[in-house]
Amino acid sequence: MQLITCPWCGPREETEFRYGGQADLAYPADPSALDDEQWARFLFFRDNPKGTFAERWCHDAGCRRWLRAVRDTRTYVFAETGPYGSFPRRSARPERSA
């Protein structure tokens, strides 16, 4: 069981946290402007890198605040954690083509 550093509570047991998937995917400003494929990509498609990955975690059994973490998917090691809003978010609209 890993230790995860909550920006508000400090290092806490992994079981206190809930995983929230990929970070930095903002809800589209106007979903109706997206075509079906773009909307489907927002809904269902997520990155799955081997290496550094920005993720959302929620300190469920602690302060109940969401945080942003950067983790290496090969080693599980957390490179950094911070308050959720403290990092810039990129547009949700996927750049890749199908």
Binding site: R64, W66, Y84
Partner: peptide, 8 residues
């Protein structure tokens, strides 16, 4: 509700 309020 918290998730939307905090993250979006």
């Amino acid at each position: 509700m918290e998730e939307w309020l905090q993250t979006e």
